[in-house]
Amino acid sequence: MLPVGYYIALSAFIFVTGAVGVLVRRNPIIMLMCIELMLNAGNLVLIAFSRQNASMDGHVFVFIVITAAAAEAAVGLGIIVAVFRQKSGDIDMDKLSEMKG
């Protein structure tokens, strides 16, 4: 069995990739995908520790996270489509600042 450190390292790599993606990209679809990356990095760690400890608790967490992520993606994509229509194709996140006080 692979030592748990590898899983953590992979997970950290994926998480950082996702975080950087969220921070530097302006396309909301890509940002959404990056958030998925971060969530799944978390999932990977949960699964790894679950296996290590021979417990099912981590699995339960992961199921819930996947469900929440699916719901989030559905709502997020819906918003993005609505914005896309409103702005006739220009969906640069930095320009979507109508709500700024």
């Binding site: 969220v22 921070l23 996140m93 930095d94 600042s97």
Partner: peptide, 9 residues
């Protein structure tokens, strides 16, 4: 409060 989501993130 810049209004840029990424700075909040």
């Amino acid at each position: 409060q810049t209004g840029y989501m990424r700075s909040y993130a």
